[in-house]
Structure formats: structure tokens, C-alpha cells
Computed example of a mutant assay.
Amino acid sequence: MGGHMRRPLVTAIVSTFDAERLFAGCMENLLRQSLYARGLLEIVVVDSGSRQGESALAAAYAREHPGIVCLRTQRETLYAAWNRAVGVALGRYIANANTDDRHHPDTMRVMAEWLDASGAGLAYADTLITPAVNETHMDTRSDVVWAMPGYSLRQAVVDCIFGPVTMWRADAHDAIGMFPEEMRIAGDYAFFLHVAWKMGAVHVPLPLGLCHQSMDNLSSDVVGAVRENYAFLPALRRCIPLADMYPFLDGNASDAARCIALVDYANLLLFAPGGHADPAHALDLYAEVDALCPGRFDVRFNAAVAMVKAGERERAMDALRGIDVRDDEERTLVAHNVRLLQRGEPLWKLATVSVSHPLTDALAPLVPRERRRMSRAQYIALRPGGAAYLAGDASADATR
């Protein structure tokens, strides 16, 4: 076990299991971080019962380089290993370093600077994506960037926007707790969403990571991720006050303003991307709106769609037939959905109604995660000394 002469600013945690062919590349990548050269990066390795040679490699690195802590455990979940590393970490900030992913040489410094400037509890960045094993950020041939949206709690509760390049305050664990060890895939989303809600988050709009895309990754288990999302998201969402997502409710306690927020949130939960939709919660929100502002066509119509998504087709049919329609357009919409339900058509064919409002239109737009090409000039600008190297205003995207 090595030791830095200075207290580290950042601790990078590396959990490894049967990843010997990736481990040296991961360690070399961290040792080339500019923060490590300044004695401000600690590396904590947790060998989670690997059947390969990572422990011997980690011990050799620790003998030759200061600031490396090596732990070996029985086989445990990724998040149990992360918690074990967090328990010994000395850094003010903590970052995960997956054995198959790589970082820009200045990733740890840039992420820490954005946390310093924003005061947020969590920072997350964009990343390049590659199918190649053991490429580095400096020699990759990939030009595909996985761009994350800017932070808003309203979007984070309906989609995991944080990605694989993250850094968070170590004291977040004192306030929030640890990663849920029973999870295999979605434990980081559960923890990061809680941190973002309580302490704020900031998006760093630079491709600071290089993510190895493989069907062997835990993140490729979509079914498992959906199952784990449903294990924690519904309860956490019900704990978050509506005003935390809709700032226009601060100082405006009118029923009309609350209904505007409730309808928007219910529609988001109804239409959320795979693994994040919650029709049961949406139904509760629509019911609250109907009690406060009774008779709204869009609310009762979409509530019927939520019933279908919740597996209650007969109830949805009765609800549609019970709507008091006011014009031909509403009559046509109701008849359309009734006809589809009678035929047993798939859910995606059902019509829904969306009503915009200036209060919700003024909120940060919901932008999907997207993959886009990066030009060679943009890539060169990211290299040390390049024009865009470390570019960006560290306080511009911070949201509490």
C-alpha cells in the first residue's frame, strides 16, 4: 500500500472481477491523470473475488507508486465493492473508474473544478464510445460522443441522465447514505438521483471519458436495469416535493399552478422512456388534478391511457366512455382509443393529449441522451494544449 505526501483531492475507485486483461490499462490511465502527477489523486482498488490476477497486479502497482490502496474481498456486488472503497477513501471527491473505460488525462481535475465552482454534490460528463478494448482517450479512433443532457431534477426523475463519467462529494455519503448493495445495475442511478435531489448536480459538456461498449457490460442487461429501476424509483419519486421540480410553485400556492405542475409530471411519468414509466403514480397525479380542477378533458383522457399501461383495460374503457366530450375533436379522440381497445391493438397506437403552458414551457427543456459524431478538429482541440482543452464555464449548468 502506497501513500501520498499530500491529502488527495480525489479518490478514484476501481472494482475488478475477472478483468485482468483490462486492469493494467485502467491503472496506467489513472496514473497518467494530471491530478495524480500533482499528488492529489488516490486510487483504491477492490478485487471483488476475482479468479484472475488483478490482486498481484494491484500489489505491484502499489509497491511502485504512492497513493494506491489495495483491498481484496469475497465475490460481492459492484456497489458493495464501491461502498468498501468509499469507506477507506481520503479524497474530498470520489470518482468511479470502470476497468474497461478510460479517461481524458485531465478528467479528474476538470470534474473536481466543476464541483468546486458549482457547489453541486455530483458532476457528470459526456463520453466517447468505442467497441475496441484497451484504447486510450488519446489514441482512440472513435468519433462517437454520448452526449448527456444538462441537469434538471424534472428530467432526472424520468430518465437516468448521469452516464458512466461521474464524480461526487465524499460527504454526500454522510447525508444520503451508501450505494444500495443489493442492486447489480441501477445502484449508481439510485444513489446519484438522491444526491442530485438533495445537493444538486452539474453537467460537464465535454467528452471526458472513453466508454467501452460491449454486450458483456452490466449496463447491457436492459431487463435487469428495468427491474431494479422499478424497485426504487416509485418510492423515491413520491418523496420528492413537487416544488423541487417545479420552481414556479415557490411562492405560488394556487390550485391552478399546482395543477399545471401535476399534469406535466403525470405526462412525464406516463411517457417516460423504457424502464422509467410509472402509470400508477401518473394515475394518482391525474386524480389529484381532477379533484382540484375537475372536468379537464386532457386529464381524464390521459388517465385512461395510464390505466391501460397499468394493465386495467376494462377500467380504461369505462373511463373513456364516461368522459363528457365538448366538441368533435374530443369525440373523435375518445372514439379512436375505444376502437383500439376493442380490437386489442398495442398500447403505442393509443392517442394522448398534451396541453402546453407558459409556466412549463419556461422550464429547462427535456433533451434526450444522444449519440453524435465529433469532428476531427473538435477531437484535436480536446488534446492537451488544444483550443477547447478545459473549455467551459464551470458554473453555467449547475442546478440545485
Rank of each mutant, 00 (worst) to 15 (best):
V325E: 11
G67K: 05
D327V: 04
V10S: 08
R51M: 06
A282R: 04
A81V: 02
A201K: 00
D264G: 09
A85Y: 02
V158N: 04
D18H: 11
A172V: 01
Y61Q: 03
I260V: 15
R296C: 02
F23R: 04
H4A: 11
A190G: 01
A335P: 03
E330S: 08
V88P: 01
A120W: 02
S356E: 13
S219L: 11
E135V: 10
N83K: 08
A362I: 11
A335G: 04
H203A: 12
H336F: 12
D159W: 13
S50R: 07
H103Y: 15
N302F: 04
C239G: 01
A175V: 13
A364H: 03
M111G: 07
D126L: 02
V144D: 01
R331C: 07
A95E: 06
L206F: 14
D264Q: 09
R21T: 12
V45R: 01
S219R: 15
A303Q: 02
R321K: 11
A256V: 13
R400L: 14
M317Y: 10
A291F: 11
A12C: 03
G200C: 02
A381P: 04
G25V: 02
G386A: 08
L390T: 10
V367N: 08
C70Q: 08
N252K: 02
C160V: 03
G209T: 05
A186H: 05
A303C: 03
L78M: 09
E288A: 15
D397P: 00
I380N: 09
V263Y: 13
M138V: 10
Y189H: 11
L340Y: 04
I185H: 08
G344H: 00
N302M: 11
A186N: 06
D250V: 09
L115V: 05
H137A: 10
E288P: 00
V325S: 03
V195L: 03
Q342W: 03
A280T: 12
Y151P: 07
S118L: 07
E228H: 07
P358I: 00
I323G: 04
P365W: 09
R109I: 00
D100L: 04
A253I: 06
A85S: 06
V86A: 11
Y265N: 10
A235P: 00
A37D: 12
T399G: 12
C293H: 10
L236F: 15
W168F: 15
A377H: 09
T99P: 04
E42A: 01
R72S: 15
T332L: 12
D188Y: 04
F271L: 13
G311C: 06
F17M: 06
A362H: 09
L9V: 10
D255M: 08
